[in-house]
Design a protein around this nucleic acid. Structure first.
Length: 755
DNA sequence: AGCACGCCGACT
DNA sequence: GTCGGCGTGCTC
């Protein structure tokens, strides 16, 4: 008898284990194949992990069932990607099923009970039912109306209104039959559609740079040497804004492809893929494919199939493209490596950097991390020699980095200027309008005002489902929750004390736009933020309008900071540089420095020199001062010392578990139970986890979100692997306990922010 | 996760 | 009396 080890496709921690099944003679199973297996009282998808001739001891106590079928026409997961999925589940502490779906999106599908009629519409018996039992006849009509002349049981019950009793009656009388059917989640004919035309519009025009600068040439040599080494390596490419990192990428990718290899180029945002793709398609044509989560499922499947056919040599995309099933993969590049978007904020909460490293370890290839402002983790790793390092300190054509003026807004206030714009910034904008050059104004907060508040009693309007203040939006004149999108009309009188002194406080991009328009009535202003780019085509439309110089000023949130290149922009203004610093988070300074440096880097990118203004209430702050001097090195050493003194990452690792439920008592009980299991783990001390600290349980920073209460438990430790293994054990035990029933678990390894 | 079983209130 | 609400337990 043949046996198979199966991973079942059910996203639940209790089922995160190997299940054993017997393999009937008729079926030939291979590792990575999709199969249908019985599980409890239903049938589910599964993946063949291994075949075995002998059953392990622990499996013998079960009565084994048979594998029912192989999912036909489905491709088996390549073994390297199967291993990658297992590794990722372990690494991010998420259920294996979720990890599998992320690595192998072709796995969509489920087994369902379907109701099938046992007579046709024209049957006399059915026709007589019309009079004898109109209710049953109605059931038939519901089925006959359906496209496939049959319906999933749950849908049928809803549409017909039949109860379980009525259902049994019909089944017994032989009118209907129930059968299990497998529905593939992949649309039958994956639609044929080349990458959208709009994607090509917003392309960067390349007029220069075909000859490498000496720094670029040196960076290329370093990477190429690593590629020739045929062993895994990561290299950090630290190049100031405008130093031409893309050129380096192009050069090394060309080399990889020439040698018969393939590569992946990751960019932080979907919106940036089209710019970059255009640049590379000019050289590599159809060997390039764009991939990201914004593709419709049909397009995604098509892209996947194209890659599997072996025609594709280069995949360009956002985070999820790191899983592209290329063969002969030699190189993965992460552009703007420091960007938070590389970490997925739903399960599996992976960081593309880690996945890239794992894949290149599997294939003895090279990872390149490119940035002007590397993450502290990456730069520290380069300093200690764990990863390679190469740098580019000069912009192309020896253009200078733009001078930055720091304006103290307290002084502005003392001088009687109560507007959002300092005198200096106003006059610089005015002169740009006169010379027909362009400006970018940055404020990292969308909406009009950040909270609505009663001056009499201090009441602040909050979201009913989340623990946050609502933001007022001037378009539509509503208050909106930035976490769950709940909307409300602002009150005229205070709901608490009845006072009419309701005022709007704090500033967002809508307010910036409005006030600018007031100051410069003739100027043409565009806004780039989450609200104006809700429809995906708007992003490119706004940018191409700005590029064609049909607008003078572009106001926006951090979307402005990412990789944009407009030759005519000679002024960048940051409205409130401090606001970035005041986040309750040890990474706030790092993020502020990165964002300020990146925004400043958007100007002076052509032969016209650029200028930058940082407005702030804390002009002495080190992140602000050092960003104004474009001094990454000093910032790194100051910040790394602070992290070391306070024992923050990268010197320690943190795993955060958030527990969620609608009922507060259930969460509290579960959180305590989990903490108990973890403390027991330390007491038993089998893995030698003596440097671990458990903090909590305590209400999470956002104690309520989307109508769910949130409690958290933090575990800190010096080394990541033992910490992860410790949590895995603890969570596994907790998941078997009844207190965990129904309470959602949200686990994050090394979270980027504590909010 | 889903599905069954078992125990309670409230209705044709 | 039965229908259906949800706590509890189980899945090779």
């Amino acid at each position: 008898m043949q046996y198979a080890e199966i991973l079942v496709d059910v996203a639940n921690r209790r089922l995160d284990q190997i299940f054993h099944y017997r393999v009937p003679q008729l079926l030939t199973l291979k590792v990575g194949m999709r199969v249908i297996v019985p599980l409890g009282h239903r049938q589910v998808q599964g993946i063949v992990l291994r075949r075995a001739d002998v059953l392990p001891e622990e499996a013998k106590e079960h009565v084994l069932k048979d594998v029912l079928a192989v999912v036909d026409d489905a491709l088996a997961i390549p073994e390297d990607l199967l291993n990658l999925a297992l590794w990722m589940a372990e690494r991010t502490l998420c259920p294996i099923a979720q990890s599998l779906h992320t690595v192998w999106p072709l796995m969509k599908g489920k087994v369902e009970e379907w109701v099938v009629p046992l007579a046709s519409k024209e049957d006399e018996d059915v026709q007589t039912l019309k009079f004898l039992d109109p209710e049953v006849y109605k059931g038939f009509t519901v089925l006959f109306r359906a496209k496939q002349k049959a319906l999933p049981l749950s849908v049928f019950l809803k549409r017909s209104g039949f109860s379980q009793g009525k259902m049994d009656e019909l089944l017994n009388q032989g009118w209907l039959r129930i059968e299990s059917r497998f529905t593939s989640g992949i649309p039958a004919g994956a639609r044929k559609q080349p990458p959208g035309e709009t994607q090509l519009l917003e392309a960067k025009l390349i007029t220069e740079g075909w000859k490498l600068t000496p720094e670029q040439a040196e960076a290329c040599q370093g990477i190429e040497k690593a590629l020739d080494g045929k062993a895994y390596q990561t290299i950090l490419l630290h190049g100031v804004t405008g130093s031409g990192k893309t050129e380096v990428y192009r050069e090394v990718i060309t080399k990889v492809i020439a040698q018969g290899g393939t590569a992946i180029l990751l960019v932080p945002e979907i919106s940036l893929t089209s710019q970059v793709a255009y640049y590379f398609q000019k050289q590599f044509g159809h060997q390039v494919i764009v991939m990201h989560s914004g593709l419709k499922s049909g397009e995604k499947v098509k892209a996947w199939q194209e890659i599997l056919k072996g025609q594709v040599k280069l995949v360009i995309g956002a985070r999820s493209a790191v899983f592209a099933p290329l063969t002969n993969l030699r190189l993965i590049i992460l552009d703007e490596e420091h960007e938070g978007a590389y970490k997925q904020d739903e399960n599996p909460k992976y960081h593309a950097r880690d996945v890239a490293r794992k894949r290149m370890e599997q294939h003895q290839g090279v990872v390149v991390l490119g940035s002007a402002t590397p993450s502290l983790e990456a730069y520290a790793a380069a300093q200690t020699g764990q990863i390679g390092f190469t740098k580019m300190e000069h912009r192309v054509a020896d253009r200078p980095l733009p001078p930055v003026e720091i304006v103290d807004m307290r002084e502005e206030l003392m001088k009687g200027n109560r507007s959002m714009f300092s005198v200096a910034l106003q006059s610089k904008i005015r002169s740009r309008l006169e010379t027909q050059e362009q400006s970018m104004i940055f404020l990292n907060r969308r909406g009009y005002s950040t909270f609505v508040n009663c001056r009499e009693c201090g009441y602040v309007v909050r979201c009913p489902d989340c623990d946050v203040a609502l933001t007022y939006h001037s378009n539509g004149q509503v208050m909106r929750c930035h976490y769950c999108n709940h909307e409300e009309v602002p009150p005229h009188v205070c709901p608490e004390c009845g006072s009419r002194y309701i005022r709007f406080f704090g500033q967002g991009t809508q307010r910036v736009e409005e006030e600018l328009q007031g100051l410069f009535p003739k100027s043409r202003i565009l806004r780039l933020d989450w609200d104006t780019t809700r429809a995906p085509e708007n992003y490119n439309r706004i940018l191409s309008t700005f590029r064609k110089q049909e607008a003078d000023i572009l106001v926006g949130t951090q979307m402005l900071a990412k990789g944009l290149d407009f030759p005519n922009v000679t002024l960048v203004g940051v409205i409130a540089a401090d606001q970035l610093l005041n986040m309750p988070d040890f990474r706030a300074k790092e993020r502020a420095f990165q964002l300020l440096t990146q925004v400043a880097g958007r100007t002076g990118r052509s032969n016209k020199p650029g200028e930058v203004v940082f407005q702030t209430y804390s002009p002495k702050d080190r992140a602000i001062v050092l960003a104004s001097q474009h001094d990454y090195l000093h910032f790194f050493w100051e910040e790394i010392k602070y992290r070391k003194d306070r024992r923050y990452p990268p010197f320690t690792h943190v795993i955060r578990v958030i527990l969620l439920h609608e009922k507060e008592d259930r969460v509290i009980k579960a959180a305590h139970s989990l903490t108990e299991f973890l403390r027991l783990g330390i007491l038993n001390n089998e893995g030698g986890y003596n440097d671990l600290v458990i903090l909590g349980p305590a209400p999470a920073v956002l104690a309520r979100l989307k109508n769910k209460f949130r409690w958290q438990v933090l575990v800190k430790g010096k080394r990541l692997e033992p910490l992860r293994a410790f949590l895995h054990q603890g969570v596994q035990k907790y998941a078997q306990d009844s207190s965990s029933q129904g309470v959602q678990l949200n686990i994050e390894v090394d979270p980027l922010s504590m909010g």
